[in-house]
């Protein structure tokens, strides 16, 4: 391990400058992520749902719902909960429904 103790807070400021700061693009991307997470969680609070069901309840496009849902599943916020026809159902992790 290298011996230099990094002062990451100072480095981060410079890094942020160098990378052009928190641009609108970055903000928009994060906003989309928040909106979708919130919408998905909101629907799933009422119980396990399929992707088309979440899309219909939230009014958001199903392909993006699926993408964000899979991201939430990967990082442990969502779990699979059986199947309904040709679709899997998903629930919030922790069993709340």
């Amino acid at each position: 391990m290298s011996e230099i103790k990094r002062n990451w807070r100072e480095d981060l400021k410079i890094f942020r400058e160098r990378m052009g700061g928190v641009t609108q693009e970055r903000k928009d991307w994060q906003k989309e992520q928040r909106d979708y997470s919130k919408a998905i969680s909101g629907v799933l609070e009422k119980g396990a749902r399929t992707v088309p069901e979440i899309a219909e309840a939230s009014g958001l496009p199903s392909d993006k719902i699926l993408w964000h849902l899979m991201a939430m599943k990967k990082y442990g916020k969502i779990a699979e909960a059986g199947r309904s026809g040709d679709y899997f159902r998903y629930e919030l992790k922790g069993g709340q429904s």
Partner: peptide
Amino acid sequence: PYGHVMRPSDGKI
């Protein structure tokens, strides 16, 4: 990425 074969538009098997 999905753990299953599903289609990207809506997760249909």
